[in-house]
């Protein structure tokens, strides 16, 4: 219970941290613990900015990504954030 409390406090602190300004260019990344390696995002990306990474999970090439957001809508595990 103490552990859960600490984690919740930690989350609240980090939420306060959200108070910072948002970066001017959005950036998408993949939550590797949620990605199931289905490759759907790779197939939909119009810029070929997504590839398979070292652990078989998707990674986004930030230099090529144009933030169209198609990968977010298609991901069956909602792993892109």
């Amino acid at each position: 219970m103490k552990k859960i409390g600490i984690i919740l406090i930690l989350i609240i602190i980090l939420m306060v941290y959200i108070g910072c300004d948002k970066v001017s260019n959005p950036e998408y990344n993949v939550d590797k613990s949620a990605c199931n390696s289905c490759g759907a995002c790779i197939g939909i990306c119009p810029k070929d900015a997504i590839e398979i990474g070292e652990d078989g999970k998707a990674i986004i090439d930030q230099t090529k990504c144009n933030q169209c957001g198609k990968c977010i809508a298609i991901c069956p595990e909602d792993a892109i954030y």
Partner: peptide, 23 residues
């Protein structure tokens, strides 16, 4: 699960949030 991505700009000495995800 919680992921926070932030960045620091040298020129403005500001911390910016890139993305936050709570699941």
């Amino acid at each position: 699960s919680y992921i926070n991505r932030s960045c620091y700009d040298n020129e403005t000495s500001q911390i910016y949030r890139v993305s936050n995800m709570l699941r």
